[in-house]
Design a binder for these strands. Structure first.
Lengths: 339, 339
DNA sequence: CCTGGTTGCGCAAGCGTTTGCGTTCAGATT
DNA sequence: AATCTGAACGCAAACGCTTGCGCAACCAGG
C-alpha cells in the first residue's frame, strides 16, 4: 500500500537504520550509499511517517499557533508571515483558532496540543491560568501581543509611543477636545489598550489638556464597536473635534458613523487610527503603522532559534519600529460653524 | 516524566488496553470501570500521544487545510469558519500557506501532508498535476473555490449569476460603457474569473451592448491591481462610466484610483464589487455578497461527513446563496459635463 | 449439573521510525 | 605480522498507543 522505510531498505539492499540515517543527513553513511538511498526513496515516492518518527524521536517538527480569530486582518497577517518561516524551516503548523469561549475553554482544559508540538506561538493573551497551562507543555513559547510575560519570547511595538505620536499630531493641529475609541479593556493581562491609553493621556497632560472620561468610548477592537463608540461620542453635549482610535478597524467604524451623521472628515472631525490596516490607505486613514508581518516573522525566527540552539528566553521584548503615516482624515479643527 | 497510558493503567490497576478502550468510549468496559479510569486519567492529567495513537490506528484526527494566503480576508474567513467546525468535532488542523511559488512547489513535491491527515480542505486552485497529487493521498478532499473538480467535494456560489446581478444593476441605471476589472486569468483551471466574466458578457449581450475588449483590465484580485486596472481604464479615449470589479478588493483599489484622479463616486463613475468584504460596508461599496464563512463551514461539515460516513463525493457542487447589496457607489451615469 | 452465550478484561503483536551499541572490515600504526 | 582505529553498516530495543484474540467468570436455559 503506502511505502514504508523497510520497503526502501529492501529495494536498496540495506537496513532500515541506514535508510533513516541517510535520508536525514546523519553521519555513518557513505556518500555513495546515501545517494543511492535518496534516489530509491524518490523513485518509490517515500515520505517518512511523521507519527512514527515523532513517536520514536520525541520531536514532532510541528509548531502550534494559537490565535483568537484567524479571520481578522492582524492575526491573519501575523500567521501568514510566521507560517512562511516555519514551513521554510521544515516545520508544519498546527492551528488553533480560539475565538469562542467554548473553543478556548476546550483547548486549555484538554490541551490537545500536548505532545503534538515542539513549540507554540500564541497570538492570544492568555490569562495567568492559561499561561501556566502553556508553560506546563515544556516547550518554547512566543507571542506578538500583549507585552512581557514570563517564559515567552515576545516581539512587539512601542504601543505607548505610537499612541503619543497619533495624539500629538492631533494636538499639533490645534485640537483640544480629543476623543479616544479604546480596545476591549476586559482582560487585564492584555496591556496594549492600556499602553495606548497611557500614550493618549501623556500627550494630553503634556499639552495641558484636562482628560475627560466622557471622551473615552469602548470599541472592542471591531468595526461595529468603533461605529457604536463614535456614535456615543457624537451624542455628547460637547463632542470631540478629533478622535484617536486604538485600531484602524475601529477608526473605520468611526468613519462610517460620521458618514451616517453627515459629518465630513476631516473638515468636521479628524480621525486617526493605529495599525495601518491593509485597507487604511484605501480610505485615506491617517494612522500609525506597525510592521505586522515582520513581527510574525521575527517571532517565528526567535522561536526556531530557541528550538535549535539553547532554549533561552530574552528578558526584554523585542521592539519593532513604528511609523506615523499622515493621510487624509486629519486636519485642524473646524472653528467655523459649530454643531 | 510525561504521563503515559501505562501510568494510568497502573494507577487504576487495569491493563493499558482497558484504559484505551475506556477513554475512547469503546465497548468492552464496564461503566463503573470506565468512570474510575476517566477519573484517574483526569487526575494524572493524561493526554494520549497523538503520534502513538495515529501510528497504531492509522487515523490522525487531523485535517490539512491548504490556502494561498491566510492573510487575505476571503481565505482567512473561510479558514476561521472551517477550523471551528473541525475543532468542535475533535480534529486538529494543519495549515499550509502556499503563497509563494517555492512554498507551493515544496509542498506538492514533498507532500509533507502525506500520512499526516485524514482529509484535506484546499482553498487554492490546484493545477491538474497538483490535483492528482492530492488525490494520491487517498483521503477525502474538499474545496470552496474554483468550481467542480473530480474527487473534490466543492461548495461554491453562482459566480455567473452574481456577476449578472451586478452588471444588470449598472445597465438598469442607464450605463452603456461598462468596464470590468477582472481577476488573474492565469490558471485556467480556476473558473471563477471566467464565470464572472461570462455573467458580464451575458448581460451586455442581453442589453444589446457591444462588448469592448479595451474595457476589460486585469486587477489580479488585489487592491493594488484594482488601482492599476482602474487607472488604465481612465486613460482610455472613452473611459467607462461604470465599472464592475470582480472582487471587492479590486473595487477598493479602483475607488482609490478614482479619488486620485479627483473623480467622484458615484457621480462621475459608478463602481460595483463582488464578495462583500468585511470593510465594503465601511466604504459604502455596492456589491454582491457571498456567504464566505458559511461556505467554509459547509465544506468542513461535508468533509467530516465523508470521513465518518461512506466516502462519497457528490457530483454537483453545493451552491450557496448570493445577494446583491445596494450601497452608495452606484448611480445613473452623469450625462452632464463629460471628461 | 452441564452446556452455550455474554460480558469484561488482559495478552501480545503490531504501527513505522529512531538510536545506542555491536559487528565487520579496510587501512594505518607499531 | 599483530594490533589498533575508525568508518560503514546491521541488530534490536524502544516510543506509546490500538486491537484481534483468548480466557476467565458469570448468567440463563435445558
Amino acid at each position: 500500500m503506502t511505502v514504508s522505510i523497510t520497503d526502501v531498505a529492501e529495494a536498496t539492499g540495506v537496513s532500515a537504520s541506514t535508510v533513516s540515517r541517510a535520508l536525514r543527513g546523519r553521519p555513518g553513511v557513505s556518500e555513495e550509499m546515501r545517494a543511492r538511498i535518496v534516489e530509491v526513496a524518490a523513485e518509490l515516492g517515500y515520505t517518512a511517517s511523521r507519527s512514527a518518527s515523532s513517536l520514536a524521536s520525541g520531536r514532532t517538527y510541528t509548531i502550534g499557533v494559537v490565535v483568537p480569530y484567524v479571520g481578522r486582518w492582524f492575526f491573519g497577517t501575523v500567521l501568514d508571515a510566521a507560517e512562511k518561516v516555519f514551513s521554510a524551516a521544515g516545520y508544519d503548523v498546527l492551528l488553533y483558532n480560539l475565538g469562542s469561549p467554548e473553543a478556548r475553554k476546550r483547548f486549555f482544559t484538554k490541551l490537545p496540543i500536548r505532545k503534538r508540538v515542539d513549540a507554540v506561538l500564541s497570538l492570544l493573551i492568555p490569562d495567568p491560568e492559561e499561561a501556566a497551562a502553556l508553560c506546563s507543555l515544556g516547550v518554547p513559547l512566543a507571542t506578538t501581543v500583549g507585552g512581557a510575560r514570563p517564559g515567552f519570547t515576545v516581539v512587539g511595538i512601542d504601543d505607548r509611543g505610537g499612541a503619543e505620536n497619533a495624539v500629538r499630531h492631533l494636538v499639533n493641529l490645534g485640537h483640544r477636545r480629543i476623543g479616544m475609541i479604546s480596545g476591549a479593556s476586559e482582560p487585564l493581562h492584555w496591556t496594549t489598550p492600556l499602553d495606548r491609553r497611557q500614550g493618549y493621556l501623556d500627550v494630553l497632560a503634556d499639552a495641558g489638556i484636562e482628560p475627560d472620561a466622557a471622551l473615552e468610548a469602548d470599541g472592542g477592537y471591531t468595526v461595529e464597536g468603533g461605529e457604536r463608540a463614535m456614535t456615543e461620542l457624537l451624542a455628547l453635549r460637547h463632542p470631540p473635534t478629533a478622535v484617536f482610535a486604538q485600531s484602524d478597524e475601529m477608526a473605520m467604524g468611526a468613519l462610517r458613523a460620521l458618514r451616517r451623521h453627515r459629518l465630513r472628515v476631516p473638515e468636521d472631525v479628524s480621525v486617526v487610527g493605529f495599525d495601518d490596516h491593509e485597507l487604511s490607505e484605501v480610505v485615506g486613514l491617517t494612522t500609525v503603522a506597525q510592521p505586522v508581518a515582520a513581527q510574525g516573522r521575527e517571532a517565528a525566527r526567535l522561536l526556531l532559534a530557541r528550538l535549535e540552539g539553547p532554549n533561552t528566553v530574552s528578558p526584554r521584548p523585542v521592539e519593532m519600529p513604528i511609523r506615523f503615516i499622515l493621510r487624509e482624515t486629519t486636519a485642524p479643527p473646524h472653528t467655523g460653524r459649530q454643531r
